[in-house]
Design a protein around this nucleic acid. Sequence first.
DNA 1: GCCAATTCATTGACCTCGTCAACGAATTGG
DNA 2: CCAATTCGTTGACGAGGTCAATGAATTGGC
Lengths: 303, 303
Amino acid sequence: MQRHVADVRAFNRFYTRLIGLLHQGVLDSSYSLTEVRVLFELDRAGRMETGDLRRLLGLDAGYLSRMLGRFEGDGLVVRERSAADARRQVVELTPEGRTRFAGFDERAAEEVRELLAGVTDEDRGRLVASMATIEEILGRAPRTDRPYVIRPPRSGDLGWVVYRHGTLYSQEQGWGMDFEAMVARIVADYVDGHDPRREAGWIAEVDGERAGCVFCVRKDDETAQLRMLLVEPSTRGMGIGTRLVDECVRFARAAGYRRMMLWTRDVLVGARRIYQATGFELVEKRRGGGDETFVEEIWARDL
Amino acid sequence: MQRHVADVRAFNRFYTRLIGLLHQGVLDSSYSLTEVRVLFELDRAGRMETGDLRRLLGLDAGYLSRMLGRFEGDGLVVRERSAADARRQVVELTPEGRTRFAGFDERAAEEVRELLAGVTDEDRGRLVASMATIEEILGRAPRTDRPYVIRPPRSGDLGWVVYRHGTLYSQEQGWGMDFEAMVARIVADYVDGHDPRREAGWIAEVDGERAGCVFCVRKDDETAQLRMLLVEPSTRGMGIGTRLVDECVRFARAAGYRRMMLWTRDVLVGARRIYQATGFELVEKRRGGGDETFVEEIWARDL
DNA sequence: GCCAATTCATTGACCTCGTCAACGAATTGG
DNA sequence: CCAATTCGTTGACGAGGTCAATGAATTGGC
């Protein structure tokens, strides 16, 4: 796995540089890359609401507004109010806009044609096949619709929690046994003395297999702490993590806490996205560990 | 070919989006992508002269100077004068800088690890193999060191000039027969009435095969026109185009012209790079053709 | 059926990234 | 030894993009 990660990263660097070179041609066309992307989408879709365009490309509303204004000034697009909802706008390329875009598009195609000119017919076939393979593997939408359930921990689950934390973080992150021991202690404390009205845990199951977990424990009377969030790699992207955190937040609110906090490390980027999505904010960040090699983060939100 | 170009472009769009997602993690680390690239190179190289760093990453001198100043303020690097040449600087990561970089690097690796987590072992193998294939095919440095010669046209060459213009531009650009006819007329005029002191042509040969051509013809007493520059796709990237243009410029200067101009179309991005590199500047740009579908460009330079 | 909350597009202020030209100090070539 | 060149630095600037405030249109709750 480690080997594969390095290989993929090397390829990413290689391809980033390549794409940079290919973009050169478009870049000196007095329209920016983003502008060309907007034109591309408009060309493809025919008419579109600006809101859809914005969401599709992830653009700032103000930025897009100004951009479309400029396009309109240049005679590339026409904007009109939506008939159904006068706040919204529908935008469309003019014939002039279409021919201008066709020009950019042709230049971009020429760049690629040049790139391929130096490749033999046979290699060209291999190249396209390899690209198709990559797109298929990485683009394959992971099945996000598999049914899963969230349930309280049963006997046997807690051992699994320790085991999976140990395996995933020790393997993937190279964290040592002390991390495993810490998890074991948290679990032990949870079992030993917890008040079920103020502390709880959840296990996620997919197809009868354990797929994730999270725990809500008391930090002080006002503050709940979210601990030991974990989602199996093979079931990530299905929204299980977010669902677990939501469950945890709902419980903490009902249990009378005013605030919820959690501790994590900066390298766990997947978890970070879940916390951001569920309303947490980063409140503290500091070096940790004996040798200061990692960065601890504390996140919190009001309930 | 057309099909392959479309496939490659689709893959580029796909992979651009993917890389964008992967960069997310690095981007919210308070250092920009470029800054991380600089740290990456410093981490790999140990000590480096800033000039090398600048050339390697293609950065502006002022930009890098300020960036290194900031890094020094943050305690990430140390800068010192080169012993050999006191104008130059040698820069090196501090231990602090190394651990900070290790942090970024680990986060980036984690993003990739997450991406691969959703892929089965078998597919992971196929993925990495496909990436290797692409890198091999596109990264294979085309042999730029093959010997070539530039010589005056001989009988048989002019037919070849018309033939290759027709084939390459008709095929690749979809330009029609009128373009072919235009080339034929230029060649005919050149043969019929040219003054060898004021007009000339050159053929490039690689391994005894014709690989390119260019012509210098009289526009008016003061102005020479460069016409019919062409380099075979399979020999592009060897510098033949630049060499042909240089030859042409040198002749025009010796022949007493004051200015040289040329006509091209905006989609010929490869040619554009050659013109820029040989000192030409874009002086005019206008729609052309009966249906206004393409953009003509006029480039010129003083001699 | 009305009012408060929400959703849109727009605008001005602002920030970061990166470029360009000018400059002084150091070096090299003739 | 002096003129031309190279190197890093600095100030001014521009492009691309973000953010928050605003007003107009719409929706939801009562």
